[in-house]
Write a protein that binds this DNA or RNA. Structure first.
Lengths: 144, 144
DNA sequence: TGATAATAATTGATATATCAACTATATTTG
DNA sequence: CAAATATAGTTGATATATCAATTATTATCA
């Protein structure tokens, strides 16, 4: 007996919101660039800012596990968005490098990603954003 | 060039929060009941409240597509949490029924789910909850 | 009524999620 | 230094996500 039905909880609202945003963003991305997912785009974006990230670190940044990241990066390598080479200083790691094609994807995606975020947050005030982040942070840290 | 890095956005915070909650909740559920996922538990909970739901309707309630729902329910049937029989009034549909085993799972899960929600929302005021839902709703509806 | 369209569910293909077991390399420590 | 540990990544197994195509049934409408 689960007295309060799941659809009435705030967790349901959180889930709904992020899924809706992902669908919306993915649709707009797919209209501009072929064959790239939001998560792959995020991997590229993180690597652009921090070229020395390991697979494990990227996985943590996009909330995935190492196994998923291995497979995602395999795909991105076969799609020529990334290259992978052994790091000679620590042979357990890989150097990941964004290819020219990957850079072009990032270039095209930039304005679209910005626009997605802007549209999704239309009518949300700066103050609300701060509240939102602070409440979410509270919940997340309760779940540790 | 994606100027604002994904980890700084509110979407990242939303994603992080829901994933953290799911992990937390799944862990507590797994400690009490073997071999059930959060989503399966939600399917049971929805069916308990609304026994006439179709697979399609349940899918919408838990934000999954029909294909995923078909496979999930197949599994739940082989795990004897549900039975599936043809609806004679509309032979495209199925009647889904919670088995005794499924009911026992719900029984055990009830207090755990309640406790999960309570712990996750510890220190979050009623007002904050209302704000949270209203901001999330705004974002979700921007993404339609 | 018969052709057409809509609906509920399934299936196939491919990607991703998750856990556990494993490999290879690097670090620690007794 | 050698043995034990830790770390980065891979692989296998199974479940789920997603899209498109398909089946079976029901509803529409010309």
């Amino acid at each position: 007996m689960i007295s309060s039905i799941p659809s009435k909880t705030v967790f349901h609202a959180i889930e709904r919101t992020i899924k809706q945003y992902r669908k919306f963003a993915q649709k707009n991305i797919s209209n501009a660039v072929n064959d790239i997912t939001i998560d792959q785009a995020m991997v590229l974006a993180f690597l652009e800012k921090h070229p020395d990230l390991t697979q494990k670190e990227i996985a943590a940044l996009v909330f995935k596990d190492n196994a998923s990241m291995t497979r995602m990066i395999n795909l991105m390598v076969t799609k020529k968005q990334l290259t992978r080479s052994i790091n000679t200083l620590n042979r357990r790691r890989f150097n990941l490098e964004i290819t020219l094609k990957g850079k072009q994807v990032l270039e095209k995606l930039g304005p679209i990603v910005q626009d997605n975020r802007k549209k999704a947050l239309d009518g949300v005030t700066e103050e609300e954003l701060i509240q939102l982040e602070s409440i979410l942070e509270k919940i997340a840290s309760n779940c540790k």
